[in-house]
Every structure is written in structure tokens, then in C-alpha cells.
């Protein structure tokens, strides 16, 4: 490194930018979150053209480009398509989660896409692709995806 400077002291300017945002979920996602919060039900939209059940729900089918969508309820239970175990703490992990954190892609029964969420109530070495899991709801629900606390193995 010293050869890069030839005796010159490198000056570094430390800074941070704080930019607040308010993200509007939109009518479609809002309907999902209200149903989740008030009825503890997981819903999705089904495309009337291709028949695919999309979760997160879409206002428009991304493949068919149609608004011909209807609401359907999907199961609380599903299959783990893949997973990752984060072994080291970093900023993107919420404060209430302790490493190792297990992150799963869960295809709920009745849906054609996976939902990203936490797996908990099991050890990292006990997770496997294809295992069956079910939603555990949070006690205090605020209308966000974390109204589902996590998914746990089906006994």
C-alpha cells in the first residue's frame, strides 16, 4: 500500500446519507396485508388466462399481461423449495433475529410461486429441501409480511 502514496497521507472523508421513504403498498398488496392481519389468512391472485396462482399477489399477471385476476386463499402449509443459513450477523437481519438465521423459499399449497420468509423452530442441520412447513402468526399484527412470524416444521 505504501508505494501507492509515496509519502502522501491519504485523506478520507467519512459521511452518511439518511433518506427517509414512505413506500405505498398499493391496493393489491394492501388487501393481502389486511386479510393477513385481521383474519390470519394467506391469499394470492390467480390469473384467469394462464391459471397461475401468484404469491405475492399481482394486480397484473407478469406473463400474460392481463388484469383478469381473482383472489384465492392458499394454505398455511407448504413445501421448502430451497433455503439459506446466515451464520454471521449483519445489518439486513432484524434486531429480533439471532444468527444462525434460516431463510426459506416456501411454496404454499395452492400457489405456483414461492414466498420468501424465515424458518424457525428447528436447527439449521435439520432443514431439508422438500420438507413440509406451516405458518406461525405473530401475536401483534401490524399489516406487514412479518405478521407471519415464521414457518415451522409440520410435525
Amino acid at each position: 500500500m505504501s508505494d501507492q502514496f509515496q509519502g502522501i497521507e491519504p485523506m478520507v472523508y467519512q459521511s452518511q446519507i439518511n433518506v427517509p421513504y414512505s413506500w405505498w403498498a398499493g391496493d393489491t398488496a394492501t388487501r393481502f396485508f389486511v386479510t393477513l392481519r385481521d383474519e390470519k389468512k394467506i391469499t394470492a391472485t390467480k390469473c384467469g388466462d394462464c391459471g397461475k396462482v401468484l404469491l405475492p399477489p399481482r394486480k397484473i399477471c407478469p406473463r400474460c399481461f392481463t388484469e383478469n385476476m381473482e383472489w384465492v386463499k392458499v394454505s398455511d402449509e407448504g413445501t421448502v423449495l430451497s433455503f439459506a443459513v446466515a451464520r454471521r450477523p449483519f445489518a439486513a437481519i432484524p434486531a429480533d433475529k439471532k444468527v444462525p438465521v434460516i431463510w426459506g423459499l416456501i411454496q404454499l399449497d395452492g400457489a405456483d410461486t414461492a414466498l420468501l420468509h424465515y424458518l424457525d423452530g428447528l436447527r439449521p442441520e435439520d432443514v431439508s429441501i422438500g420438507m413440509r412447513v406451516t405458518a406461525v402468526y405473530s401475536e401483534a399484527r401490524k399489516g406487514t409480511i412479518r405478521d407471519i412470524s415464521h414457518f415451522k416444521p409440520v410435525k
Binding site: Y21, W23, A84, A92, I93, W103, L116, Y118, R146
Partner: peptide
């Protein structure tokens, strides 16, 4: 996505 993915995202 800030509403669906970031809250349950592990890097």
C-alpha cells in the same frame, strides 16, 4: 422489494 422481500431478507 421494500414491502415483500426486505423485511425477511438475509443478504
Amino acid at each position: 422489494d421494500p414491502i415483500w422481500d426486505r423485511l425477511v431478507f438475509a443478504g
